[in-house]
């Protein structure tokens, strides 16, 4: 045992030295404080509960969470080093900034809609009772949280594609999440991209029904994830790896139906400041503790947005390596 412990200690010391060289922090300073911007949502759950689970502490990290209302703000803060990491989704705003030379990359994925068989997807395109299929939405008003260029618009685009439609075929209306079911009810819109718990609300109130099978429409796309700026990508890479290790540690608790795990539900509800039943009764997102990124999603997002005038400032799609850095995740998960 002692023989085994010695090399481990030596390796630990070497790693610490390496980290010191890279981060420039003294060896005695064992914790590093990171500013992390986040959009609140259960699809990003592991990043939020990793603190309460002690995963960040175990990696020598102290996290200062900064709530973000608009993803564009997070991208701006990340590009100007006001944030170290952003827990949210990539968007056209990120793509345009990267095209201009900003160093922003997706380094890990979090929740996806690839839920187990028999479990409904936590989001989807819902139509009013008069609408029977996606095809019937041509020329009709469809509500969306945000505008074209956001990650939610990508999910809507995928759902419309299932009926052979694109953004140009419908009239998009920007609405808040909680305004969508009332708008479907009073005829303000004919369809809406809903997220749990609004999906259940629409069904319970008998005002709308799912127009597409979201799991089929979205496929293996994952938009929820972690995005780093220059600091964690380059100058403090080791800290970035530690942050991902902590997230992988928390994601393990999210495998399967994590809504039945009372401790996780309580931690998530406390963080998101919502009642526990909102979490336990809400939609199920699937998590993979390897935090694997689907690079194809970012390419597909660009392909979709470039077709809409005025969304992307460039025409030649950015290659995946400009938007994704998978090496930190591989290092983190391999070493976890």
């Amino acid at each position: 045992m002692a023989a085994l412990a010695l090399p481990i200690l030596a390796l630990g010391a070497l790693t610490a030295c390496g980290a010191e060289e890279e981060t420039g922090t003294p060896a005695s300073d064992t914790t590093r404080t990171l500013k992390v911007g986040y959009i609140s949502g259960t699809s990003l759950g592991p990043a939020f509960v990793a603190d309460a689970l002690g995963c960040y502490r175990d990696e020598g990290l102290t996290i200062e969470f900064e709530p973000i209302k608009n993803p564009a703000d997070a991208i701006a803060f990340l590009a100007t080093d006001k944030l170290d990491a952003y827990v949210g989704s990539p968007s056209a705003g990120m793509f345009n900034q990267v095209a201009k030379g900003a160093e922003l990359k997706m380094v890990a994925s979090l929740g996806s809609v690839n839920t187990p068989e028999g479990e409904a997807a936590p989001s989807g395109l819902f139509g009013a009772k008069s609408i029977k299929s996606v095809e019937e939405l041509k020329g009709k008003r469809v509500a969306l949280l945000g505008s074209v260029g956001s990650a939610t618009s990508y999910l809507l685009g995928k759902s419309l594609e299932a009926g052979g439609l694109s953004f140009g075929d419908v009239e998009l209306v920007t609405l808040g999440s909680s305004d969508m079911v009332p708008a479907l009810k009073n005829g303000g819109v004919e369809a809406a991209l809903l997220f749990a718990p609004e999906t259940q609300k629409a069904i319970d109130q008998d005002v709308a029904h799912a127009l597409v099978d979201s799991k089929k429409a979205y496929g293996s796309s994952t938009t929820a994830g972690i995005i780093f700026g220059t600091k964690l990508l380059k100058t403090e890479r080791a800290t970035g790896v530690s942050f991902l290790k902590a997230n992988a540690c928390a994601a393990k608790r999210f495998e399967g139906d994590w809504r039945k795990d009372a401790e996780i539900v309580k931690m998530l509800a406390d963080f998101m400041k919502v009642p526990e039943n909102t979490i336990s009764g809400g939609g199920l997102y699937a998590f993979d503790s390897s935090l694997a990124i689907n690079e194809g999603t970012l390419t597909e997002m660009q392909e979709m947005f470039v077709k809409v005038e005025g969304i992307l400032t460039y025409t030649d799609l950015l290659p995946a390596d400009k938007l994704v850095d998978d090496t930190l995740r591989a290092e983190a998960v391999g070493a976890a």
């Binding site: 993803p71 968007s91 705003g93 990120m94």
Partner: peptide
């Protein structure tokens, strides 16, 4: 900013969202 798909307010808000 919040309830339009055209106009100068929309232009400002949307341009910020799109990173332009």
């Amino acid at each position: 900013f919040v309830a339009a798909d055209a106009g100068l307010g929309f232009l400002v808000w949307n341009s910020w969202n799109l990173g332009v």
